[in-house]
Amino acid sequence: MTEYKLVVVGAGGVGKSALTIQLIQNHFVDEYDPTIEDSYRKQVVIDGETCLLDILDTAGQEEYSAMRDQYMRTGEGFLCVFAINNTKSFEDIHHYREQIKRVKDSEDVPMVLVGNKCDLPSRTVDTKQAQDLARSYGIPFIETSAKTRQGVDDAFYTLVREIRKHKEKMSKDGKKKKKKSKTKCVIM
């Protein structure tokens, strides 16, 4: 069974824990209790493949930012979460993405942009803004509501699919490099 290491990042209060708990335990946590770091595991079937999701729910508070490099190193894919009623959390996505790329030393890291709290009427981040940002990053965008469960499975499952595509691409690139290195030079 394939294991996928997913990391949920975003500013404090955007609903990272609520999304994760909704996926794992099928219930909505409405009281806000700032996370330092929590880890969850769940076995699911995605596109006919049974897999184990190892999900790291991270601290959004700035005082825990020193811990970010460590979990970013171990993560295979990242859910970059903002709240649709919090423009600052949307603007912060850029910083999370840049930090992930720096730590992973790669421009090509599996990510999904997630606009959470889409059940709320007080939207300050337009869907088109988020779609445009995701398009500019070359990553999928999904709106979710941890409260109603809308888009929750889709967000995590899409990230797994992005990781699969990335692994497939990397193995193809690896095979191309191996083929090239088999060419021999004969000096007579």
Rank of each mutant, 00 (worst) to 15 (best):
V9M: 14
D30W: 06
I36S: 01
G10A: 15
K5W: 01
G10W: 00
E63V: 03
E62T: 08
Q25A: 09
Q61Y: 08
T20C: 06
G12N: 07
I46L: 08
L19W: 13
V9Y: 07
L56V: 14
L6V: 09
A18M: 06
I46D: 11
Q61T: 10
L23D: 06
L56G: 13
C51I: 13
L52A: 09
D38S: 01
G48H: 08
V8K: 01
I21M: 15
N26L: 04
K16M: 15
T20P: 07
V45W: 06
L6S: 01
Q61G: 07
G60Y: 13
N26W: 05
Y32A: 10
K5I: 01
E63A: 04
E3W: 04
R41D: 01
D33S: 03
T58D: 14
T2S: 12
Q22K: 13
K42H: 06
V14R: 06
D54W: 01
F28W: 11
T50S: 10
N26D: 11
L52Y: 07
L19T: 15
V7R: 02
E62P: 11
I36M: 12
I36Q: 02
V14T: 07
L52K: 08
T35C: 15
Q61W: 04
V44Q: 08
L6F: 10
D33E: 09
A18V: 04
T2A: 11
D54N: 08
G12C: 04
D47K: 06
L23Y: 10
L19Q: 13
K5L: 02
F28C: 08
C51T: 09
V44C: 12
P34F: 12
L52N: 07
T50L: 09
D54I: 01
S39A: 14
A59G: 04
S39M: 05
E3F: 04
I46A: 10
V45H: 12
L53N: 11
V45A: 12
F28I: 05
G13R: 05
K42M: 08
E31D: 12
I24L: 13
R41P: 00
N26G: 13
V29K: 04
E31W: 07
V9D: 04
S17F: 00
I21E: 03
L52M: 10
V14E: 12
E3K: 10
E31L: 10
D38M: 01
Y64V: 08
F28V: 05
C51K: 07
A59S: 09
I21R: 13
L53S: 07
A11Y: 07
V14M: 12
T50Q: 11
V29W: 07
T50M: 08
L23H: 13
V29H: 11
T20I: 05
V8H: 01
I21P: 01
I55F: 13
E37M: 14
K5C: 02
Q25V: 09
L53M: 08
V45Q: 12
E63K: 04
Q25Y: 03
T20S: 11
I24P: 02
A11S: 08
L6N: 01
E63F: 03
I55K: 01
P34K: 13
G13M: 06
Y32N: 06
G12E: 07
G12Y: 04
I36K: 02
E3P: 14
T2Q: 11
E31N: 12
K5P: 12
E62R: 05
V44L: 12
K16L: 15
Q61F: 08
Y64C: 10
Q22C: 04
Q43V: 11
E37D: 11
G15R: 00
Y64H: 14
V44E: 09
L6C: 07
A59I: 10
L52I: 11
I21A: 13
G10H: 00
V45G: 12
Y40H: 07
T58W: 07
A18N: 15
K42R: 11
V29G: 06
E49S: 10
G13Q: 10
D47R: 05
E37H: 04
